[in-house]
Design a protein around this nucleic acid. Structure first.
Ligand SMILES: [Mn+2]
Ligand SMILES: [Mn+2]
Ligand SMILES: [Mn+2]
Ligand SMILES: [Mn+2]
Lengths: 218, 218
DNA sequence: ATAAAAATTTAGGTATACCAAAATATTTGA
DNA sequence: TCAAATATTTTGGTATACCTAAATTTTTAT
């Protein structure tokens, strides 16, 4: 059975709003994720259900089947491997990779996937700190917390960003915050929950509550 | 102006049956190249003409405009760079790369193209000996000849293969003939034009006239 | 319980890219 | 020159993947 690029993108969208939690995946939410009309989603979900890639009914919405899950995870694996390749070997910055990876993730070749994995040294995390599913679809789990939930004085390490938009990533660059940097929350402003954070034991920067929620630490 | 994947494939097909010679490009020939119905070609050529990517009329057929030529060459450049990447860095053999490159050639990112070029060391030829157009669309020219036209006793070097099918390439592997190998034609059979060829000053192999026509030497 | 709000589906279209069969045009050979 | 062969285009369809507007269903709040 072949899965079209469009279908792959639906599976990925369904995965992203389901995983790791269970529960209803609204038609509307999928539409929003993909930037299309809810009416179009109805049709496609019906098609995906016919192909046994999702279970679908009005009451409980869409849920990936075993096969659908496998397909979704494979696309995500490819996306994150390509992002890693672009940053580590082609001088891309972390804010430049996503758009290209959206294209590369649909290239179909098992040999390419295997060889790329080996070439990269079988990495576990992508340039945004997102876990790369392994060949069997297992996803390394991260037990990380929002920076906004950390008490003052504790030394934490940046492990992931929860927003991959170029604007947020460039903002972090400007603040001098990158993956693996150590952070200590020095002060929490009571009135707006903004933070004063010490970065790598040197600089201190102010971060809004908004920004802190998108920085995941461990 | 955006050019769809399908349109890119038409431009490439038109280029391949035009270049470097001029002359009529039949509707039929394009259909054959792309494995589609001539009726479909009519429609698409009309569309490409509207987009000013080709000049098109019944009498003289299709001809790439300056812009169409540029687009076609860019796709070919990407195709050949990716083939080079796959062979040189991901352990692909020369008979495995074409299919994957057919997909990769449509990835759109100028940065990716530039960085890949640099990563590969700005190569001039792909794994089949085909010239890689440079960034400005200039194509290095090769003054090579069919092995079938070479007189006995002359020492030649394999520079290109004129058939990229896996079956032909695997056949060459089996005969122990690769790019850059030195060849000397020892005997030419009069009745069927088959050749006895010395490879790399060591082994001797028989090649059909068919095969010899697909091996280009210099 | 029920009306308003929100979500989903249906109905009727669009654009792209293909097809087969029939019609037309062009080329070629006798 | 003119009929047969060949090439191209027209005609009427198909499949995919979208859309808007209207109808329907479900949820929520009174
Ligand atoms: Mn991404
Ligand atoms: Mn990522
Ligand atoms: Mn190729
Ligand atoms: Mn090639």
């Amino acid at each position: 059975m072949t899965i079209s690029v469009t279908e792959e993108n639906y599976l990925k969208a369904i995965f992203s709003v389901t995983y790791p939690a269970e529960g209803r995946v609204g038609n509307q939410l999928i539409a929003e994720k993909l930037g299309i009309n809810p009416a179009s989603v109805t049709e496609m979900l019906r098609k995906l259900a016919e192909k046994k890639l999702i279970e679908y009914n009005r009451a409980s919405g869409a849920k990936l089947t075993k096969e659908g899950l496998k397909a979704a995870i494979k696309v995500i694996r490819k996306h994150r491997l390509w992002e890693t390749f672009l940053v580590e070997h082609l001088n891309f910055t972390w804010d430049e990779v996503h758009e290209v990876a959206e294209q590369l993730e649909h290239i179909q070749s098992d040999k390419l996937l295997d060889e790329l994995t080996t070439f990269l040294g079988n990495p576990s995390f992508d340039p945004h700190g997102d876990p790369i599913p392994d060949k069997n679809g297992r996803i390394p789990n991260q037990k990380c917390k929002n920076l906004s939930e950390i008490e003052t004085g504790k030394k934490m390490k940046v492990v992931k960003v929860a927003d991959n938009t170029a604007s947020f990533l460039k903002y972090l660059d400007k603040q001098g915050i990158a993956l693996a940097d150590s952070l200590i929350v020095k002060e929490i402003q009571d009135f707006d929950k903004s933070l004063l954070v010490e970065v790598k034991g040197k600089r201190e920067v102010y971060l809004s509550a908004e920004a802190a929620k998108k920085i995941l630490v461990e």
